[in-house]
Structure formats: C-alpha cells, structure tokens
C-alpha cells in the first residue's frame, strides 16, 4: 500500500509539473501548480541536505563511540560543525563569525585541495603513456598539450596564426564532441525522468 501511495505521489507530482511546462498557455492552473510543487521541492531539498548533515554527525559519533581509528578526527569534525552551526543560529549567516569561517577555513582549505591537483595532474599525465599507449590516449594527450600550448601566456605573446589556428581547431572538435555529449546526457536525463514518471524507477523508497 505504501509503495502504491508513494509511487502515485511521485507520478502525480511529475505529471503536474510536466503539464505546467507544456500546457502553461492553455491551462494556467498547471503552471501555478508546477510552481507550487517546485516551491515545495525546494523546501524538501533543503531539509534533505540537513538530514544528510545530521546523518554525517551520527556516523561520526558512532565512530567515536566505537573508538574506531580516526575517531578523534571525527570528534574534531563534529565539534567544528556544532560550533559553526551554533554561531550561525545565534548570530545569523551574515555575521562576521560566519564570514570568517568562510574566509579562514572553507575557502582556503578547499582551494588548497584543488591546488594540490595541479601537481597531481601533471604527474598523472606523465605516467599516462606508461600505462596506456593506445591511439585514443595519444589523441587525448596531444589535444591537451596543443590546447595548453596555444592558450598559455607566453613571454613573447601568442604566436601569430599558429595559436589561433590550434585554438580554433581544438575548439571546433571539442565543441562538436561536447555537443554530442550534451545531447547524450539530455537523452539520458529524459529517459531516466520518464522511468521515474512511469514508476519503473522508484528511488524514493517505493521498491
């Protein structure tokens, strides 16, 4: 019974939203319903993020309680979370404390993690031909190098014609490939969405 109800709810919600998309001119009610349901979905999605964070805390607390390896790091994480969340609740998200949290912790650490990648990617590129020497690997590597060489800042400025030719060529090929990929992704999205609307896929726990 519960499966039927949840499936019916999901299918009905989706159909209403679809009707709101394509019949908004004919039936404005569907458009209003679509916006209403979308608004609900925004709230529910926000709550879902919150549930995810609570689950993260639960897992880390269990890890600490079980004295598993890395439990102290989990405690540090929970402590930082609670402190930040408490400051945000008390002082609001626009307060200096929260802004300091962003400037001092979130942005530096996250950017540093990405910065490490600059070295790691070079290392991986060097090892690429050691692992795979097929034609596609070579094409991949050559396209990357050509694009970097053509686009990189040079002490003497861009090479006339050469850089632009390479950029145009790589842009043409990459745009064509990217368009095919985007269309493929859209097709996949369409198919996945239809499967949900037809009740064939029930990722909401209806199975």
């Amino acid at each position: 019974m519960m499966r039927v109800l949840t499936a019916a709810l999901a299918i009905a919600s989706g159909i209403i939203v679809l009707l709101g998309y394509f019949l908004r001119q004919v039936f404005p009610l569907f458009e209003q319903l679509r916006l209403l349901l979308t608004d609900w979905a925004v709230v529910i999605a926000a709550a879902a993020v919150l549930v995810g964070i609570l689950n993260l805390v639960t897992v880390q607390m269990d890890k600490l309680r079980a004295r598993q390896p890395g439990g102290l790091y989990g405690a540090l994480m929970v402590f930082a979370l609670v402190v930040t969340f408490g400051l945000g609740l008390v002082f609001g998200t626009d307060h200096t404390f929260l802004r300091a949290a962003m400037d001092a912790v979130i942005a530096p650490v996250e950017a540093s993690l990405l910065a490490i990648l600059a070295v790691t990617l070079v290392y991986a590129s060097i090892r690429l031909l050691r692992r795979r020497t097929d034609l596609m690997s070579v094409i991949f590597l050559v396209a990357m190098l050509l694009f970097l060489i053509a686009a990189m800042p040079k002490p003497f400025g861009p090479l006339p014609l050469v850089d632009q030719l390479i950029l145009d060529l790589t842009s043409l090929l990459s745009t064509a490939g990217a368009r095919g990929l985007l269309i493929g992704v859209a097709l996949g999205t369409l198919l996945t969405g239809l499967r949900v609307l037809f009740g064939m896929d029930r990722p909401y726990g209806g199975n």
Partner: peptide, 15 residues
C-alpha cells in the same frame, strides 16, 4: 603552464 607542458612532454616521452 609552461612547466606543466614541459614536464608532460618530457616525462611522457620518457615513459
């Protein structure tokens, strides 16, 4: 980028 390209070309050729 120049260092990266050089490293990739040289290292790639060696590998």
């Amino acid at each position: 980028l120049m260092m990266a390209v050089l490293a990739i070309v040289i290292g790639g050729a060696w590998n």
